[in-house]
Design a protein around this nucleic acid. Structure first.
Lengths: 145, 145
DNA sequence: TATTGTTATACTCTATAACTATA
DNA sequence: TATAGTTATAGAGTATAACAATA
C-alpha cells in the first residue's frame, strides 16, 4: 500500500534512523516487561536503585533526565508495590536513600534477565560483534568524551 | 555530583543506548530547526511530501506511525503557513493529494541542508565510515528484511 | 542563600470513538 | 462493507511555579 512511497532521504538521517530503531526496540521491550508491570522508565529507575543502593531521587533524576515532580509518583507506586523502601540519608537530612526490598530485588533479577533476552531477540539480524559495534557508536554520540 | 552513580548495567542494553542517543540527536536537531519553526515531526512530514508529491494523509500516517487524527492539525498548520497545498486525488474521490508550495519547497531545501549539518555536528566523534555503519546497523533493527 | 523532595497545575503528545463522504 | 479524512475527547508524558524542611 505504501510500497511506492520514497523514504530514502529520511533514511539517510541519523535522527530518523535512531528514533525508528528506538521505537522498535522499546515496543518489543514493553511487550516483554508487561508481565512484570514495568514500563521502560520503571525498569531504568529500579535497575539504578538496585545497582546503587541508597541513591537519592535527585541523583536518579539527574542520571535519567527525569524532572523531580515526575519521579514522585513513580516512587510512590513502587513503595505501594513494596518494591522499594526509603531510609534517611546518613549525612543529609533533606535527602532520602532508596533501596530495593527483597521482593524488589527478586523482581529485578527476573526483569534484567528478560531485558537481555529482549535485546537478543530484537537484534536477531545482528551478530554479537555488530551489537557491540552498535553500542559503541551510540555511546560515542551521547556520552561525553 | 553523580559521578559515583553506576550506570554500567543500563549501558549494556540496546534500548537504553538507542534512546539516549536518540534524545541527544533530536535535541540538537530541534535547536537547529527552531529558526524554521519545524519540530522533528514537521520536518519528516514536509520532507516526505516534498519527495512524494501527491502523497495522501493516510500514506503519511502509515509511513511515519502517526495516527490520522493527530496529523490533521499539522496539515492545517502547514496550509495556514502556505507551506503545502491540497489537490483532489486523480482517481480516489475520498483522498486528497498533498504538495509543497513554492515557499514550502524553498523552506525544505534550507531545512534539509540544515539537517545534514546537524547530523555531522552531532556525530563529530564518528568517522564517515562509522556513520555509515551505524546507519546500516540501525536499519537492520527497524527495517523488515 | 541554595538544595531536596513535594504539591498543584499546565502543556504537549498520543490514543480512542464516532461521524461524513466516497469506494 | 470498507476506507480517507475529520471532530471531539481522553489519557499519558513532560514541564513550570511555588512551598516546607534542611543545608
Amino acid at each position: 500500500m505504501n510500497d511506492d512511497i520514497d523514504t530514502r532521504y529520511l533514511e539517510t538521517l541519523l535522527g530518523y534512523n535512531t528514533r525508528r530503531a528506538s521505537l522498535t526496540i522499546i515496543s518489543r521491550f514493553m511487550e516483554r516487561m508487561a508481565v512484570f508491570e514495568l514500563r521502560p522508565v520503571d525498569f531504568s529507575v529500579l535497575s539504578l536503585i538496585g545497582h546503587n543502593p541508597g541513591i537519592t531521587s535527585r541523583q536518579l533524576c539527574s542520571v535519567l533526565n527525569i524532572l523531580p515532580p515526575n519521579l514522585v509518583g513513580f516512587l510512590k507506586a513502587f513503595e505501594k508495590r513494596q518494591l522499594i523502601e526509603r531510609k534517611p540519608h546518613p549525612t543529609d537530612g533533606r535527602a532520602v536513600g532508596l533501596f530495593l526490598t527483597e521482593s524488589g530485588s527478586a523482581l529485578m533479577r527476573e526483569a534484567e534477565a528478560t531485558a537481555e533476552v529482549s535485546d537478543l531477540s530484537t537484534a536477531t539480524n545482528l551478530t554479537a560483534t555488530e551489537r557491540k559495534t552498535l553500542t559503541r557508536l551510540l555511546q560515542k554520540i551521547y556520552l561525553p568524551n
